[in-house]
């Protein structure tokens, strides 16, 4: 089973034996990988019926729930790591979910598409909202309502009092060294609440 590239990197950031909460866990691939490769124990939260079914099939712990209603089910500091991969940009209550992540977990990890990518800028220069393989939606049907750039995210993290403990800006699954704010398609951050 090949793991999505951002999930592979996220997995590398998670210490062996961690208790992990994966928000918007999809088919449970990250949790299944962490269980097998890093001896982690984890729970996923997922709203989609099909994905929940996949989790059940692969014996991944899963709770069917809507993240927008928060993480009330989970107590303070219950997890070592709370993951939110490629979902932040689709959340209505962006600040709320980030605060909840550091409440229920010691560390948070998020990944999101970089809206500042040069192709997006080009698209906008040509008068259109960007449509890319990573975000293949038209402006009127996109679930991605809170798009941002790495810098934008860091400003919000600072406002929320988070300490950023890890950052990776990627294109094609590889770290981008030169002009990452323009060339990275995906941003990953690890943080702790203060």
């Amino acid at each position: 089973m090949t793991l999505r590239v951002d999930l592979k990197l996220i997995a590398e950031w998670i210490a062996a034996g961690s208790d992990v909460l994966d928000l918007g866990c999809g088919d449970g691939a990250l949790l299944a990988h962490l269980r097998q490769a890093r001896d982690c124990r984890g729970y996923g939260v997922e709203i989609d019926d099909g994905h929940v079914l996949e989790c059940i099939r692969t014996s991944v712990n899963v709770v069917q729930a809507d993240l927008e209603s928060g993480l009330r089910m989970f107590g303070d500091d219950m997890f070592d790591v709370v993951v939110l991969s490629q979902t932040l940009q689709a959340m209505h209550n962006t600040e709320g979910i980030l605060r909840e992540m550091v409440r229920v977990g010691r560390q948070g990890i998020v990944s999101f598409p970089n809206f500042g990518h040069w192709k997006h800028l080009l698209s906008l220069t040509g008068g259109h909202m960007p449509v890319t393989p990573q975000m293949p939606y038209q402006w009127y049907d996109t679930p991605n309502i809170h798009l941002c750039t790495p810098k934008d995210f860091e400003i919000l993290a600072a406002k929320l009092g988070f300490a950023i403990t890890g950052r990776a800006l990627l294109a094609g699954g590889q770290p981008v060294a030169w002009a990452p704010n323009l060339r990275a398609t995906l941003a990953l951050y690890r943080f702790e609440g203060r």
């Binding site: 019926d49 929940v52 709770v63 069917q64 729930a65």
Partner: peptide
């Protein structure tokens, strides 16, 4: 049902919970 799920997770028990529309 979520009350039960919540208590199970607090006890680190394995659980799958489906909320059927």
């Amino acid at each position: 049902s979520r009350e039960i799920v919540e208590a199970l997770i607090a006890n680190r028990r394995d659980v799958a919970y489906a909320e059927i529309d």
